[in-house]
Amino acid sequence: MKNSFREKIVGNLQGFLVPIAVLAVWQWLSSHAIVNPQILPTPTAVLAKWWEYLMPMEAYNAAKSGYLAWIFSGELIRDAYSSLYRVVVGFLVGASMALPLGLMMGANDRIYQLFNPLIQVLRPIPPIAFIPLSILWFGLGNPPAIFLIVIGAFFPILMNTIAGVRHVDSIYIRAARSLGASQTMMFLRVILPAATPYILTGARIGVGTAFIVVIVAEMIAVNNGLGYRILEAREFFWSDKIIAGMFSIGLLGLAIDTGMNRLNNYLLKWHRGIESK
């Protein structure tokens, strides 16, 4: 028990070795002016900038706003919120279109044959390629950005849902039929849960794509959000802010992925592949 605890501590410390070494080399390179600090600022400068980006821009004024509102009034918080908002809305819209269509296409051959050709043609188009059209159709601001995210989330969820329904083990269908299951029961209690592992994989890929797309969309169509902020920083040659923004994007992505992972494990606690992790 004690031994394994020690091993765990040592293991965790080991995980820090490489990042610390990289940071040390980075710090050394830029503080000794071996690389131009304008190009590559020191890690401490990036951290300082990140803190500044995170914290409220104005001093606390109880007359103007509540303390909580003030704490969350920093630029980073607002940018992260904007980006997250777009991802969530785009993902939900995309998923709510992809899921029913995918279920229908997976369950019904006629519907599959009807829709599949169009989907096969549209699917390989990267969501980014929709940018010009989305601006033409929706102008600037949230609508084109969300449109792009919808497209980014739609296809992975659709394709995985179709595959999930089509790959339901026939033994479950046979067992349910012999128990007398109606079409509705079969669909809701057998096919849908059996397809859940696939659907969740699709959802996870969909969120990942949505997160990529939101950054690109913000660089082009809107003037806030994490993607916009790092592009803006480039115009002012604020390399420290660019890097601070990139790390923030990474942290948000990690948080989203961890959240999806938790959801996955909760919904699939019956699943053979998932034991304790």
Binding site: I171, R177, S178, P193, A194, W270, H271
Partner: peptide, 26 residues
């Protein structure tokens, strides 16, 4: 197929997303 002829399969064919109780109750 119908519930008047209950079927037991070699591969068990239990629904893995249902607990034991739910499987029996289905």
């Amino acid at each position: 197929p119908g519930p008047d002829r209950g079927m037991v399969f070699q591969e068990y064919a239990l629904f893995p997303w249902m607990t034991v109780e739910k499987n029996i109750a289905f």
